[in-house]
Design a protein around this nucleic acid. Structure first.
Lengths: 152, 152
DNA sequence: TGACGATAAATGCATATGCATCTACATAGA
DNA sequence: TCTATGTAGATGCATATGCATTTATCGTCA
């Protein structure tokens, strides 16, 4: 009804900026991790979620909900993390299909090292460029673009 | 000196939003193209640049400057575009190493079809969610995050 | 002119991703 | 209990990506 097939020039510009800047920043952060001999960002995302989850761990499908990874992607990522002893897979008592993923001490340490680099990237690439108010505004505006529209 | 190793909570939140939302929106747009039986976004980016460039075309290294693709990525992408007759490769008179890439009529038509879908995605995902003023503000704020810091 | 470092573009090889499917177990219904 | 349908997670296969290197040409300087 009110659907527009053609976006406004403001919308196009905002879209282009969003796509380009996010990719650039991601690449910068990725580069910094690599330069420090650390694993890629994707690993951080998973280790972060697992660290937050604590000793109880998380099921793979919960990781899928919390991150933007596809199911096969998580499956393989967890296999690599396990091979590196950063996480461990535990059987689930009441569901023979599933497993619980728990971060290891090793994994916590790796996450800490990654954060030292990743956090610095965020501080430099974003924190140093905009004021606190501006950052809050960016968050609020971007929040309204989420898929699907959330409430938070 | 004034470098901070630890980002503020506002910076972290803005970063997280930026990464998550941009990925989600990109995936939505990508999905729409796929659903319409059209090529992926990356193809659009290149076809768009070439369409803008007109009959003179562009050298691959110019495409690399204008987009965020790596050299080997452009090389292969152009090979696929050429195989699909969407672009043509022409020898360059004064530089035997290089080639000029020109979009074909076919390529223009494909780009047009892609824009019908892609533009609709932008309108729905971004244009419908924020006002013109807000969109302008997003562009301005994101513009200040560019790497390397530009003037525009 | 000839040698050498720089630039344009392609490519071999290893790894990662996407898609579809598969296996295993769970749950519901006859 | 048996069967059908659903859900959790893994995987085979095709394609795409990243990295390093290669090939070809350019430009410069002795």
């Amino acid at each position: 009804m009110t659907e527009k097939a053609t976006p406004s020039s403001e919308a196009i510009k905002a879209w282009a900026r969003l796509m380009r800047v996010s990719r650039q920043l991601m690449e910068s952060a990725e580069e910094a991790l690599k330069a420090a001999g650390l694993p890629p960002l994707a690993w951080y995302d998973v280790l972060h979620e697992l660290a937050e989850a604590g000793e109880g761990g998380l099921r793979p499908f919960q990781l899928i909900e919390r991150t933007l990874f596809a199911q096969y992607n998580i499956s393989r990522l967890l296999a690599r993390l396990e091979a590196d002893r950063l996480v461990e897979k535990l059987p689930v008592a009441d569901d023979g299909r599933g497993q619980t993923i728990r971060i290891t001490a090793n994994g916590r340490e790796t996450r800490r090292q990654m954060w030292a680099v990743y956090g610095r990237s965020i501080a430099e690439l974003v924190g140093a460029k905009l004021s606190g108010e501006e950052l809050t505004m960016v968050s609020a505006l971007l929040g309204r673009l989420r898929q699907p529209p959330a409430s938070d």
